[in-house]
Structure formats: structure tokens, C-alpha cells
Amino acid sequence: MTDINAYDASPEGEFRDYVALLKPRVMSLVVFTAFVGLWVAPGQVHPFIGFCAVLFIALGGGASGALNMWYDRDIDAVMNRTRSRPIPSGRVQESEALGLGIVLGTISVMMLGLVANWFAAGFLAFTIFFYAVVYTVWLKRSTPQNIVIGGAAGAFPPMIGWACATGGIGIESILMFMLIFVWTPPHFWALALFMKEDYHRAGVPMLTVTHGRRSTRRHILAYAVALAPFAIGLGLTSIGGPLYMAVSVVLNVAFLRGCWQIFRRSEDQAIADDYAVEKRVFRLSLYYLFLHFLALLVQSWLGGW
């Protein structure tokens, strides 16, 4: 006699659980920045080729997300924010996530090579390796600078988009990389100041825990200062123009002002108003990146200098 209740604890997931392994929210940033990198690059790309290139760059990003979730399953099970992810909640098996990551990573690299060029495909393979191995396996659990170095993986997509159109790299694509790379630490540390995640319990060294919150505030300001020249410098290249420059100057002034306020505040002041400034700067940082890339897109449409 069969007891149907025996299946109740089955770990079989729905289709959306496998989609969740690809970190769709991170993919949306990858899609947007890769698209802008491809769009502003010199040369003509057939619209359908461009669509496929962005699709496979996003798929590569999703594959690295699945590999990250596979490796970090022990950390994810401990932290409140990640406890309901597909692997720790038991809806997807560990081996399934590993298999999905490897297969999708391979497909995305091969397809990007066939669709665009092998330089871009190699770049995508390196990005997947960087995020899944260099960041997730080597650095995330060993250094409080994990966010800084890991940010590089999120910064590569516009360079890959550019490489799809040009077959190489240029000063413009390097500056787009630097814009995201230097933006990531202050963006994430502003979040870390008010989220107070249980990273410590999970064994992940976060700057707020290892060096203290005062030091984190100093780091946020230092990175915001370092970020401005790259953002504005991008406006002086062939893909910049008056509109981008105006947007960039306004955003950098606002961001520097916000980071200066974070630097000046004590922890007691922050607790008193429930981290209002930190939350505002975190929201501003999201607009900062989105509007910079949007400005590049519109500037390219209008024509540059």
C-alpha cells in the first residue's frame, strides 16, 4: 500500500525555484549595464545579435549566481535574509544547483562566442570564474575587503557588452568598469550599516564587524571621493557629452554630500533617527548608478561632444 504522505517532505522544487537560483534581481543590473555597454560602443551591431548577446551575458551572470548559492548554502542557512533561498529551504538539491550553474555557464559562454566574438566569450568565462571562485570561494570568507574585490564581477558586464560590439576593450569600457567597481563598496557598506545582518554568526568578515562602524563610515567617504573622478572622467571620453556631464556632476555632488553626512555622524545619532541618512544614501546610490548609465544611453542617442 502506498502512503502518499511519504512524499510530503520531498525537496522537489517548482520552476520558479530554479529561476530564483539565477538571482534575477542581480541579473537585471547585468542586463541593463551590458546593454548600455553594447549600445554606446562604436560600430553597428544587428539588433537581434545585440539582444542575444545581452541575453547570454545575463545567463552567464545567472550561472555564477547559481554557483554562488551552491557554495554559500551553509551561510545562507544561518542568515535570516537568505534562509528562504531554494537550497537552504530544501526546495532544490545542492547538486542540482551546481549542475545548473556549470551547464548554464558553459552554454552562455559558447553561445556568446558564436553570437558575438570569442574575446567577449572569454571575458564572460573569466567573469563567471571571478565571481564563483575568486570572490565566493577565496575571498568572501577570508577578508573584509570581499565587497571591494567582488564588486569587480558586477562591473564586468558593460565591458563585455562593449567587447561584443568592438571585439576588444577601450578607455570608455574601462571607465564604465571603474564606475561600477568603485561604486559597489560605498553602496554595500551603507546597507551594512543599517541592515545589521548576522554575518558574524555566518563567519563572513564584514567591515562593520572586523573594523567597526566608525571605520566603515570613513571607508564610505573615501570610496565616494575616489568614485567621482571616474564618473566625471567618463564624460570626457567619446561616449560622454553635455547631458551625461550635467547628470554626473549633480549625482556626484549629491552622493559626496550624503557620504560626508554618513562620515560625520556618530552611531548614537544614527540610532536616534533609525539610520535615516544611511538609508537615504543607499537609495541615492541605486539612482546614482542607474542614472549614470541611462545618461550614457541618452547621450549616445543625442550624439556626444
Binding site: Y7, S10, E12, G13, F15, R16, Y18
Partner: peptide, 16 residues
């Protein structure tokens, strides 16, 4: 229909 079958169908249709 058991809920397990609904989950399987979701996977099969999605993959298809």
C-alpha cells in the same frame, strides 16, 4: 491532484 505533481508540472512546462 497531489501538490507534488503540480510542482513537477510547473518544472516540465517551464523547461519545455
Amino acid at each position: 491532484e497531489h501538490e507534488l505533481h503540480a510542482r513537477r508540472r510547473s518544472r516540465n512546462v517551464g523547461l519545455g
